[in-house]
Each structure stands twice: as C-alpha cells, then as structure tokens.
Amino acid sequence: MIKNGYQLTLIANIEKSISINFLERKLISTGIFIQFPKTIKYHFFLKKKFIEAICVIHITKNKKKTVLCQEIKMIITNVFFETMKIRSNEKLAVLNIFQGPQIKWKKCSILNTSMRGCNSFGSTGI
C-alpha cells in the first residue's frame, strides 16, 4: 500500500508464452476487472522492457456482465529486431490507485502582487 492509495501488480493472464516478432503487436490480458469513479486517479508504471517497446494501456468495457466493469489490457508493439517473449504470469506493470484532490475554484478579479526579480519569468533575482 502506498500513502493514501493502493498498489496493484499487473501480470500477464495468459495460458502459455506469447512471442512478438519485429513490428508485430499483441493484446495481453491482465485479468483485472475494475471500475474507476471520477474521483479516483491512477498511474501505470511499466516494466523496463515494455518502456523500451511501444506499450499502450487499453481499458475495455466488459459487455458480458450487467455491472459496468472494465478490463485492463496492454497492447504491446515490438520495435526490436529480436523476438520479444511474454511468459504466463509475467509481471507487466504496477498500477497505483489514489484519491484525487478535490479542488474548489474561487473567482477573483485582482491577483496579489509579489516581489520578483526582473531576470525572467518567476525570477527570484538571484
């Protein structure tokens, strides 16, 4: 568990290993079904080999269930000349889920003045 949130490891939910050839793409299921309210924020942290390849997080709607759940899947495109192999239950990414801040905007017509240097935008004058 992270501060004010949760951490979830996404693994490849596949029966057998998948090979991805050069410039080929595959949709990898994680088997995680989730429903995000609008106040929940989330970040994905990918494993190094997926950062170097082209990887897209794909959240699909599950049409089989009556409750609206979404499955997290990954579209992986291999941009390396050698074949990439994804094994069953291999760690793909980490998902951090946390409560988003609630912001209330306040209208104002005048901004407070501050002492700034004249070197550049936001300058402290140092």
Rank of each mutant, 00 (worst) to 15 (best):
K64N: 15
I51Q: 13
N89W: 09
N62A: 13
N119E: 14
K16R: 10
I76V: 15
E24C: 03
I110V: 13
K107N: 11
F44A: 05
T77H: 07
R25Y: 11
I32M: 01
T83N: 11
L23F: 14
E82K: 10
N112T: 05
I59R: 02
G31P: 01
L46F: 11
F121W: 07
M84W: 05
K63G: 05
E90S: 11
K63S: 14
K26V: 04
G100K: 04
L92Q: 04
L27R: 08
K49H: 08
L27K: 09
V79I: 15
V94Q: 08
I59H: 05
E15I: 03
I110W: 01
S109W: 00
V67I: 12
L27V: 02
A93T: 10
K73N: 15
F45D: 08
I18A: 02
M84N: 10
E52S: 13
I40Y: 05
N96L: 15
S114K: 00
T77W: 12
R25L: 11
S19C: 12
I75F: 06
T30E: 02
K48E: 15
K91M: 13
I75S: 03
L23Q: 15
K106F: 00
V67L: 10
L92G: 06
C108G: 01
G117E: 03
K38L: 09
Y42R: 01
K41H: 01
K65R: 11
K64H: 13
I76R: 06
I51S: 11
L68P: 03
I40T: 14
T39S: 13
N119W: 02
K64M: 10
Q35T: 11
I40V: 15
S17R: 06
I75L: 13
I103K: 13
G117Y: 05
F50P: 09
K49R: 11
I20T: 08
A12I: 04
T113S: 12
M84F: 13
C118N: 13
A93P: 04
F80R: 04
K85H: 12
L23D: 13
N78I: 03
E15P: 02
F50M: 06
N13G: 00
F98D: 03
V56S: 13
H58E: 10
P37H: 06
I51T: 15
L68V: 10
I14Q: 05
I97R: 00
F33Q: 00
T30L: 01
I51M: 12
K16Y: 10
K104G: 01
C118V: 12
V79G: 02
P37K: 08
I32H: 01
E24M: 07
T113C: 00
S120C: 07
W105G: 01
G100S: 06
Q102I: 05
L27G: 01
K65F: 09
E24A: 07
M74V: 15
